[in-house]
Amino acid sequence: MTDTLHDELDAAFGSGPAHRPVEVTLGAGRRALRRRRVSALAGAVAVAAVLGTGFAVSSPGGQGRSTSEIAADPSPMPSPTSVPAVDEEWSKGEVVRYADDGTLQVRPGVEVHERIENPYDFVPPERSDALDLTFRGQRTWAILTLDRAAGEEGLQFGASMATPSNGWADFAHYVADQVSVDRGGSGAPSGWPGTLRLTAEGEVVPTSGTEVLQRTDDPRLGDRFAPPGVPTGAALLRAGEERRELFVVWRVEGGVLEVVTTPIDDPSANLVGATFAELLSWARGQYASGEGLR
């Protein structure tokens, strides 16, 4: 059976579409390597500061706010008008760029909903920006960097684009989290209110200030959400200072409670007015398709 199964599996699917150019992977690899080196350098700088050596800092992360301060205060700048669109020639696929003088340029037709300036606290001529933008109907969270790799000459442009996700409460928390991870940290808070907690007895209960409107401990979200035997649940809650209505699903694996939060008052999600049963049905579909809720 094993040999047969091997052959049958091998023949069960093809090789897929064309691969990404290796240059794309090389570029991402170089940026990852550079971030790691910069992170190591920042660690060395921190040690020197503790020792009181009067270390002169000129590297990213060494001046201005610390990483933790960035996470707490990413200084969002709502600025559809602060980043003027530039009507020069744009390459196909190019959406934002830095001009030779370091000015951030936005392609005409791109709507910038929010801009966070210099989330990496780079020192000029190095620059960084995070943009929540829409181009041709596609909402995107973008993080741009123009920086110098350790030990290399010249500045390199890097752009990371992601589809907005409910993994974070908003764009600012997404950016803070990415910056933290890029610097070798463990990430920043998602921004969602802490609605549930795990008791010593293993029960999932609401935190203080969280109002449970409806709840089930058998949401049947499928194996893609949690393997059989893992405690799961779902609830409709009202929580946070703004008393927003949130749909949450959770799983407890290895003694750790993980809560996935979805705001149901966001018109773009088409969940406004949905009943708890409808939300559960929608969640089951999301996990069955592999899409998930984030």
Binding site: R20, K92, G93, E94, V95, R136, Q138, T140, M161
Partner: peptide
């Protein structure tokens, strides 16, 4: 099936608009 961070994609442009789009 679901993860919080790994989907941060490094790509030079928006989907469907990149000259190197597959």
């Amino acid at each position: 099936d679901e993860s919080r961070r790994p989907w941060r994609r490094e790509r030079p442009g928006l989907d469907g608009l990149d000259p190197s789009a597959r």
